[in-house]
Simulated assay, not measured.
Amino acid sequence: MARKFFVGGNFKMNGTKESIKGIVKNLNEAQLDPNVEVVIAPPALYLQLARDELTKTGVEVSAQNVYNKPNGAFTGEISVSQLKDLGVHWTILGHSERRTLLGETDEIVADKTKFSIDGGVSVIWCCGESLQEREAGETIAVIERQLAALAAKVTAADWKSIVIAYEPIWAIGTGKVATVQQAQEVHEAIRKWLRANVGDEVADSTRILYGGSVNGKNCKDLAKEKDIDGFLVGGASLKPEFVDIINSNQ
């Protein structure tokens, strides 16, 4: 089954009105591969700005987080209905920076994912292992534990609204990147787990992205691997080379 290449840009807590406008202008004017689905995730303050500035077909806006409760007395949080009110239909969930810094457990991330999908917002669901876990040979076990928590909450139909992003924690923002072989091995293991525990259709159709210091130099080699269906890009999404990453599958 053909899987449409997908590139997400996670701006994290970076950007100003001026810089966000500049990034969006660059995307609007660039020659982007029409066979790639592109999603950019600016800070929540700039979601509306990014939506208003974007004119490029095939580029959408994503939140970086969403709360798993309806509107109400939840200071500082953003609801699914508020995202939809802005015309935002994607969110990133389970990023290691939220798992480690804010204590979001596998179960919390899974619950948020289900709540988002039920509300009509698709999810870029992140998973990944620490350096200590990799060196202990626990990479696949960690990923499978995270996947199991997700699978326990979502239905088979929900998977069409999920894009998986494998982000080894030790390679996020460090300048280190998994080798092509390391990345492919984990992506292959994720697809194998989906096939065994969810089903062939989900395993064949679910897109699995690589994240972790992806840049304009390493993206083309990574994109050639059969189980790497795109990227979730951090720092490089703030730079002009983001266009090269989007076009890396050509």
Results as ranks from 00 to 15, higher is better:
residue 166 Y to S: 09
residue 207 R to E: 03
residue 119 G to D: 00
residue 145 R to N: 15
residue 220 K to D: 14
residue 208 I to E: 02
residue 182 Q to P: 04
residue 243 V to C: 07
residue 40 I to H: 00
residue 71 N to A: 13
residue 180 V to T: 14
residue 38 V to P: 01
residue 110 A to F: 06
residue 248 S to G: 15
residue 211 G to T: 03
residue 96 S to T: 09
residue 10 N to F: 00
residue 200 D to L: 14
residue 249 N to K: 12
residue 134 R to A: 11
residue 194 L to W: 11
residue 3 R to I: 08
residue 159 W to F: 13
residue 103 G to V: 07
residue 237 S to C: 08
residue 171 A to T: 11
residue 29 E to D: 15
residue 77 E to T: 10
residue 158 D to Q: 05
residue 219 C to G: 11
residue 191 R to E: 12
residue 248 S to Y: 07
residue 12 K to Y: 03
residue 91 T to L: 02
residue 221 D to Q: 15
residue 221 D to A: 14
residue 108 I to D: 14
residue 80 V to L: 03
residue 158 D to Y: 00
residue 121 V to I: 10
residue 224 K to A: 14
residue 128 G to F: 03
residue 210 Y to G: 08
residue 163 V to A: 02
residue 183 A to Q: 06
residue 142 V to T: 14
residue 17 K to Y: 05
residue 178 A to K: 10
residue 115 F to K: 02
residue 72 G to P: 05
residue 3 R to Q: 06
residue 104 E to S: 09
residue 210 Y to D: 10
residue 240 P to E: 14
residue 177 V to E: 15
residue 236 A to L: 04
residue 166 Y to E: 13
residue 237 S to F: 07
residue 148 A to G: 10
residue 201 E to Q: 12
residue 151 A to E: 15
residue 117 I to L: 03
residue 128 G to Y: 05
residue 11 F to P: 08
residue 84 K to H: 00
residue 138 E to I: 05
residue 245 I to E: 07
residue 21 K to T: 12
residue 108 I to G: 03
residue 72 G to E: 09
residue 130 S to N: 06
residue 147 L to S: 10
residue 39 V to P: 01
residue 24 V to L: 05
residue 243 V to I: 15
residue 89 H to R: 06
residue 231 F to V: 03
residue 137 G to W: 05
residue 194 L to A: 11
residue 151 A to G: 14
residue 241 E to A: 08
residue 126 C to N: 05
residue 117 I to V: 11
residue 76 G to Y: 14
residue 193 W to V: 14
residue 145 R to Y: 07
residue 62 S to M: 02
residue 139 T to K: 04
residue 154 V to A: 09
residue 117 I to G: 01
residue 249 N to L: 04
residue 171 A to M: 09
residue 148 A to E: 15
residue 207 R to N: 08
residue 83 L to W: 08
residue 134 R to P: 08
residue 144 E to Q: 15
residue 240 P to A: 09
residue 66 V to S: 01
residue 220 K to E: 15
residue 11 F to H: 01
residue 66 V to E: 00
residue 185 E to N: 13
residue 221 D to T: 09
residue 84 K to E: 02
residue 172 I to N: 04
residue 45 L to W: 06
residue 74 F to L: 04
residue 61 V to P: 04
residue 118 D to S: 11
residue 224 K to Q: 13
residue 112 K to W: 01
residue 37 E to P: 03
residue 81 S to T: 09
residue 188 E to C: 09
residue 224 K to L: 09
residue 112 K to S: 03
residue 216 G to R: 12
residue 44 A to L: 08
residue 36 V to K: 01
residue 123 V to H: 04
residue 152 A to Q: 12
residue 235 G to C: 09
residue 232 L to Q: 02
residue 41 A to C: 13
residue 188 E to D: 14
residue 59 V to I: 12
residue 178 A to L: 12
residue 110 A to Q: 07
residue 74 F to W: 10
residue 85 D to M: 02
residue 41 A to I: 02
residue 4 K to Q: 15
residue 219 C to V: 12
residue 121 V to Q: 04
residue 122 S to Y: 00
residue 102 L to W: 14
residue 75 T to F: 10
residue 110 A to S: 09
residue 125 W to Q: 07
residue 189 A to Y: 06
residue 125 W to D: 02
residue 211 G to E: 07
residue 104 E to Y: 07
residue 72 G to A: 09
residue 242 F to H: 03
residue 155 T to A: 11
residue 37 E to W: 01
residue 76 G to A: 13
residue 113 T to M: 00
residue 58 G to T: 04
residue 58 G to E: 08
residue 99 R to A: 08
residue 198 V to G: 13
residue 155 T to V: 06
residue 179 T to D: 15
residue 117 I to A: 03
